[in-house]
Structure formats: C-alpha cells, structure tokens
Amino acid sequence: MKTTFLDFEQPIAELENKIEALRFGQEDSAVDISEEIDRLAEKSQSLTKEIYAKLTPWQIAQVARHPQRPYTLDYVAHIFTDFEELHGDRAFADDKAIVGGLARFNGQPCMVIGHQKGRDTKEKIYRNFGMPRPEGYRKALRLMKLAEKFRIPVFTFVDTPGAYPGIDAEERGQSEAIGRNLYEMAGLKTPVIVTIIGEGGSGGALAIAVGDVVQMLQNSTYSVISPEGCASILWKSAEKASEAAEIMGITAPRLKSLGLIDKIVHEPCGGAHRDHGAMAHALKKALQDGLKHLQALSTEALLEARFERLMAYGRFKEQHPR
C-alpha cells in the first residue's frame, strides 16, 4: 500500500519518490546504488521524526483522520482472536458505523465495540463515514449489557467525526440513544476500557467512551465540536479551523495535562498509519496494563472509582457570598 502524504509531509513525499525512482532504476544500473538508497531512507526517517515531533493541533487532526489510519476492525484483527461479530439493535436495524462482538483478548473472553470508518468510497458510504445513527448506539448498549451479564470486560474504540446529523436519526431519537448510553455506562457492572484511536467527535464519541480507563493514541483528537465547526461558529469561517484546534485543546498531551484522559499510547514514527502492526502491538500492551489493574478491583470499588472520576470532571471556582 502506497502511503498517502498529508500537506505538511510534502518534504517526506519528495524524498520517498526519489528513493522509489532509484529503486526502480537499480536493476538496470551498472553501479551499486543501494548505499545511496539506504542513505536517503535514513534521511527520510529522520525527517519524518523531525516533522512529527512538532505537529500543530490542526496537523494532528489531519493525522487522526488519515485515510490509512488503522480502524477498529484492523485492531480487532491484530489484537483479538476468535472475533464473533454481533449485529443489530433488535429494534430497527444493524448500523454499520458501529461494529461489535465477542472476542478473546490474550485468550480471555471479552466484548469489543468500536466506530468503524471505510477505506474506499464505497466502503465509506457503507460505514456512513463512521457516523452512527441511534440504532448503532443501541446496538452498542445491547452488547455492553451482554458483557455485564456474563461479567466480561468491554473494550471500546472511538473513531468518529460525530453522531449522524440526519432526519432519520433525529426521528428515531439520536439524543435519547446517546443519553441512554451515558446513563447506563456510568453503572455498567464490568470493566470498560476506552481508547480514542482517531477522531473523538463530540457526543457521538462520548456515547461509547464512558469507562474506567480512558486513553488516547498519540495522534488522535477528542473534542466537544470539530475544529471546523468551532471555527464556523466563532469566526463564521471554517478556514480558521487551525486556530480553533489550537484554542480548544483537542490533542492527547493537552487533555492529559488537563486530567481529562489517563494515558497516551505512543504511535510509531510518522503516525499509526505507517505501521499498523507496531501500533497494534503498542495498543495491546496498554490494554493489557489497563485490564490487569481493573481486574484487581471488586465490582463495587470499580463502580465507585468510575463514579468519582465522572463527578470530578470540570473546572470552576467556589465563592461563598460574604
């Protein structure tokens, strides 16, 4: 698979093209140019590292939406075994923008739930660009309840621009579906480990993101509104998205410093999309650590800690009159 380069990666793209051209010419060439290729490859690597070391929040948002970024089902394939996908909300339909099912994590049964985006145009439409309708959230809740019943842990993977803003979604109660999930997840009697793997888009993300551990991949984002949406409200222009990304604080390091997430999972050099295997490996390690910690707790202690964490969200001052 050829890497798609983002705007700010153009210097890397040029180098890679050069390497590609040299490799192509190597077979016909009388002199050995492999040394030159290695030298360029090394340079490309260090350039990537350099560029990725100082990404702006808006550039990170681009990486989080990268068309080759691993999606939920990629992680399922790399991290879990015996995956049995479960479909439908039992009331209306099966929403393709959220996938879920039973699986094994290191041999141990668990429930996996995540937003799913599509790679090519056809698949993107099939997955509705990862934007769930109410039946998607209701399917997710059904699976969480199932996990609770059989006391197996839940892993959720968040990657959505937001819940689908459509007529049908409103008619079937998008608000209720999201609100219901928040309500039920607060008291779900089994460990829930949440990972933001790409875009954490507002309420549509939060609806499967209430848990005991909330972690983010290094180049993922999590925000109350998309940078474009924020810019179009505040400056009446989506062009200002990069400024909006800056002020809203949407990146993993910023949110970690604000105490809104627990952990950052580091990505391979140049982003998760460059090496799915290495990314999955790092994520598996993080999930393992999180689960180990949670399984040491009693259900009561687990729920109490989750509740306390929810109640602690927010920054305000207290000033008693006089």
Partner: peptide, 23 residues
C-alpha cells in the same frame, strides 16, 4: 448545547450530569 469555550470539559458534563441521575 455544550459550551465551546470550555472545550472537552463541557463535553464531560454530559457524562457527569447523567451519571449523577443514575444514583
């Protein structure tokens, strides 16, 4: 809806308020 000026803190109020109601 949510208050943009408080970023993700405002999103988390959705979870906070709703969780309190479960009690």
């Amino acid at each position: 809806g949510a208050r943009m000026q408080e970023g993700l803190f405002s999103l988390m109020q959705m979870a906070k308020t709703t969780a309190a109601l479960s009690k």
